[in-house]
Structures are given as structure tokens and as C-alpha cells.
Simulated assay, not measured.
Amino acid sequence: MGTKVTLRHKPITNGRESLYLDFYPPIRCKATMKLVHKEYLGIYIYQNPQNEIQRDYNREMLYKAEAIRSVRVQSCINEEYGFLDKHKLKADFLDFFRSIALKKDPKWRMVYKHFEKFCGGKCSFGEVTVDLCRRFRDYLMTTRQLKFTNKKMKCNSAAGYFSTFRALLKIAYRDKLIRENVNDFLEKIEYEDTRREFLTLDELKRLADTPCNIPVLRHAAIFSCFTGLRISDILQLEWKHISQASDGGWWMRIRTEKTETEATLPISDEALEYCGQPGTGKVFKGLERSMTQHPLQKWIRTAGIERNITFHCFRHTFATLQIALGTDIFTVSKMLTHKNVSTTQIYAELVNEKKRESANRISLK
């Protein structure tokens, strides 16, 4: 049964009536996901108009209220039968993008800033077409970084940003905010093969033995090598996520920020030692993402490691060491919360490359 929208009056103070819409059956508000019976319009009329001016005012306000009611009826029909509401097409796509980005990781906010720059700060849902999205793809492949304006954006950054943008388009299409599934007509930006740096076991031991000016950074880094957690997940890890299993071991129950995957992962006793004394709130209190830049590089150089090791390389370290030490690739894939084991296969290839290097060291020539 279609929703019936009725304009109603409610007596209020000073001889006035408030106008509101009555929905039957109720409609669901997408912002709160609650069922809504009434929508107050913020329009008031005189309950008993005393003169022609007040009567003209009432007629004008009732006309406006009826116009709003007609729009709501059209919206309900469009929702019921799958038509796209033309009023939604005029809505602000950038506002929608911003509201989604604020709930996601920092990369989403960076993509939002680039899109805002690309479209000049204005974009409605009706303007989100295949052509616009293709031009944004071209923009990402040629633009410069926002922070370092003298540097061109790297290909893999552009690929990741466009992948995030396509995820946004998927949400917009799911919510019936854009005309078509634009992603069906868009080509993704291909990632370039890059060298995945990781620490050898000897380097990891050396790093762990090297003092760091920021102890919480050292603890978080070594913990990442033990568990494979990303910096985003380590930053949000709380003591309530860690519990003891029936066999006496320890587990952490997390929801990864990047892939939004629910996972229950084991923690070794040695890894748990780097978490410090159990308590409440954040496990690595005081840890900031900014510490993973210059302070991290300073600590790594102090340990005598000259290669370009980022915090994410500790995740690579976990994966390659696990495979090198005999853990099967399917288990490692589960530990890394990869959705596809083919993603984990990359680390197996890195281990094989190292085996080949070690084999070639023995030579009689």
C-alpha cells in the first residue's frame, strides 16, 4: 500500500496553528533509520483570521504547505516504484560525500578534498555522470599532491583514491541518489608493482633492542610485527578488545578500519608484553599517527637500518616472517584479514625471492 500524505493543522499558542504532514503508513528517515509519522513544516497560520491581510497570509502559507505535500507524495511514489526523485538530483553531492568521509578513515577525507578541488566546490547528484567521473579519474592521474604541491601524485595513490571514490558511488547508487550504476562504465586505475619492504628477523631483533625516544611508538611497532595489524587498527585498539581464551592464551576481537572485517585473532604472550599493563581505554595511549613519520624514521636509522621502512612495512614483516618460518599461506591470510588468499600470495613470492638470493650466494666461480 502506498504512503498517504495528509496536511494537518495543530493549534498552538497566540491563536495560531502549526502545519505538519501526516504519513500513513509511516516512512523511514534515512538519516536516523526511524519510522516517521509526522513532519512539521515550520509554517504557521492564524486560527481565526481577523482581517483580509491575515486571510491572504493564510492562503499563501497553505499554498506553500500544499506544494511541499505534493513534493513528498511524489518522493514516496518514486521510492515505492524505483523512480529517481528529481528533487534528489538537485541535492548537494559534496555534502553527502563529506558526511560519508567523516565516518571513514583519513584516506576518504583526502579523496573528498581532491574531488572538492576538482569540481570547484559545487556538485549536485544530477551532475554525477559517467563523463564527470572519468574526468575525475584523469584528474587524479595528473594532479599534484595537496600537501606537497611541487610533487605529482603517485600512480598507486591515484589508484587507491579512485577506488575509494568508486566505493562512494556504490553507496550513492544503493541509496537511489544517482541515476545509474556509474561504476559499470568506469575503468579502475591500475596499481603499479612496488617493492614491499620488510625486516628480516635479525633486523627486527636489532630494532627491538634499539631505544626509541617515544616508547609507545616502539611498543606499537613491535606489536605490529607480532600481529600484522595496520596502524589504523592499532590506534583504535582498546583493552576491551583483548581477552583470555579458554586454553589460557589471549585473543583480540577487532573490526578492521580499512576493510571493515570482523576478526578474532590470537596474540602471543610476547606480543602482549608490548601492550603494557592491562587497563581501560586505548592500549597504546598517546600514540599519534604523526609519530609514524619523522620519529619512526629516526628510530629506524638509529638501529642501523638504511632502507625506506614505513610503519606499514611491519605488517609486511609479520607476513613474510610467518611464511618463511613455515606457517601456511591460508592461516597467514586469515591473520591478515585478507578477503582473498591471492592478496597474501604476494608475501609468499617475496619469501621465494629471498630463498633464491640465498641459494645464489654459494658459487665456485
Rank of each mutant, 00 (worst) to 15 (best):
residue 62 L to R: 03
residue 238 E to I: 02
residue 240 K to D: 13
residue 302 T to W: 09
residue 317 T to C: 09
residue 101 A to T: 03
residue 36 V to S: 04
residue 122 K to W: 00
residue 221 A to K: 06
residue 12 I to D: 04
residue 110 M to N: 11
residue 273 E to D: 08
residue 339 K to N: 11
residue 138 D to T: 09
residue 327 T to F: 03
residue 10 K to I: 11
residue 101 A to R: 03
residue 313 C to I: 01
residue 242 I to C: 00
residue 206 R to P: 03
residue 216 V to H: 13
residue 37 H to S: 15
residue 167 A to M: 08
residue 331 T to M: 10
residue 154 K to R: 01
residue 67 A to S: 13
residue 6 T to R: 08
residue 355 K to P: 01
residue 6 T to N: 02
residue 187 E to C: 06
residue 76 C to G: 10
residue 103 K to L: 08
residue 163 S to I: 09
residue 20 Y to H: 09
residue 90 K to M: 10
residue 41 L to Y: 07
residue 309 I to H: 07
residue 182 V to H: 07
residue 114 H to L: 08
residue 70 S to E: 13
residue 106 P to K: 05
residue 354 K to P: 00
residue 11 P to G: 00
residue 224 S to N: 06
residue 238 E to R: 12
residue 151 K to F: 12
residue 308 N to Q: 13
residue 56 D to F: 05
residue 90 K to S: 10
residue 120 G to C: 09
residue 43 I to N: 00
residue 50 Q to V: 13
residue 127 E to H: 05
residue 346 I to G: 02
residue 266 P to Y: 10
residue 364 L to G: 01
residue 42 G to P: 08
residue 1 M to Q: 02
residue 255 R to W: 01
residue 236 Q to V: 13
residue 81 Y to V: 15
residue 190 E to K: 14
residue 293 Q to Y: 06
residue 53 I to K: 15
residue 115 F to W: 01
residue 214 I to D: 03
residue 298 K to H: 10
residue 212 C to S: 14
residue 303 A to W: 01
residue 211 P to V: 13
residue 239 W to N: 03
residue 335 M to W: 06
residue 199 L to R: 05
residue 327 T to C: 11
residue 206 R to Y: 06
residue 265 L to H: 04
residue 318 F to Q: 05
residue 189 I to Y: 05
residue 168 L to K: 01
residue 32 T to P: 01
residue 161 Y to L: 05
residue 133 C to I: 01
residue 188 K to C: 06
residue 180 E to S: 15
residue 83 F to P: 07
residue 181 N to R: 10
residue 229 L to V: 00
residue 177 L to N: 07
residue 219 H to G: 01
residue 306 E to G: 07
residue 222 I to P: 04
residue 321 L to K: 00
residue 125 F to N: 01
residue 31 A to T: 14
residue 12 I to W: 03
residue 27 I to N: 09
residue 98 R to C: 08
residue 51 N to K: 00
residue 31 A to Q: 15
residue 334 K to M: 09
residue 273 E to G: 01
residue 8 R to C: 10
residue 298 K to Q: 12
residue 323 I to L: 15
residue 149 T to P: 04
residue 212 C to Y: 02
residue 225 C to D: 08
residue 73 V to F: 01
residue 218 R to M: 04
residue 175 D to C: 04
residue 180 E to Y: 06
residue 223 F to Y: 10
residue 357 E to M: 06
residue 247 D to H: 11
residue 355 K to H: 15
residue 110 M to H: 03
residue 146 L to R: 12
residue 175 D to G: 00
residue 242 I to K: 05
residue 124 S to M: 02
residue 253 R to V: 05
residue 46 Y to M: 12
residue 145 Q to L: 12
residue 22 D to C: 06
residue 173 Y to E: 02
residue 81 Y to D: 07
